[in-house]
């Protein structure tokens, strides 16, 4: 994931839009997933499932676009920090990118193995990845759930690290990604 060259300055507008826009959708889709699964069968339940899947497919498409866009960008250089922190940060980013694909794909697989229809916001129907298959269905369901929790854990770690850099180390890490946030102490944009 590490790009050979880094540039001064912060992440560009589109990168920031992807980053925070996707966070917004994750904040909707995860609670929705947890809430809907325990409901008794009703039309409302199916509607919430449909919404969850639609947002999930949107996130999958955004992850692909985001990665594509990222490959055209150079990464802003991080403020000075211990090497292990930089390594931990990039390892976390790799994990986050991987999960951005794996979680919705496992959801799609689960849906396919369950033999359920898949529609994006009631507009387009997407094909099943596999034929209905009860054994694969429970496996994919476990993978989707475990993947979602792993994603939540990595996001928590990642966000905690970003906030630690901002409030404790008082460096410009958070400002790299966040519009309107300036590097602490300096009062200037990175």
């Amino acid at each position: 994931m590490a790009t050979a060259t880094t540039v001064p300055g912060r992440w560009g507008g589109l990168s920031r839009l992807f980053h925070w826009g996707m966070l917004g959708l994750f904040l909707v889709i995860v609670p929705l997933g947890l809430y809907m699964a325990d409901l008794p069968l009703s039309k409302q339940k199916l509607k919430l499932y449909a919404l969850h899947k639609s947002i999930g497919l949107t996130l999958l498409a955004l992850a692909a676009l985001r990665l594509l866009w990222r490959s055209t960008q150079r990464r802003p250089s991080l403020p000075p920090m211990p090497a292990w922190q930089e390594r931990a940060a990039s390892a976390t980013h790799v994990a986050l990118y991987a999960l951005m694909f794996l979680v919705p794909l496992a959801g799609w697989l689960f849906n396919s193995a369950a033999g359920f229809p898949l529609q994006w916001f009631g507009q387009v129907n997407l094909p099943a990845l596999v034929d209905a298959n009860p054994a694969l269905k429970s496996l994919a369901r476990e993978a989707h759930e475990l993947g979602a929790w792993t994603l939540v854990a990595f996001v928590a770690l990642h966000a905690a690290a970003a906030l630690k850099h901002h409030f404790i180390d008082r460096d410009r890490t958070l400002a790299l990604m966040t519009p309107g946030v300036k590097a602490p102490g300096t009062g200037v944009d990175p």
């Binding site: 069968l41 369950a114 033999g115 359920f116 034929d131 209905a132 009860p134 269905k137």
Partner: peptide, 13 residues
């Protein structure tokens, strides 16, 4: 058998 356990059990209801 509609090739989906979920659908089958819903249809039974």
């Amino acid at each position: 058998d509609s090739k989906s356990q979920d659908r089958d059990s819903a249809l039974a209801g």
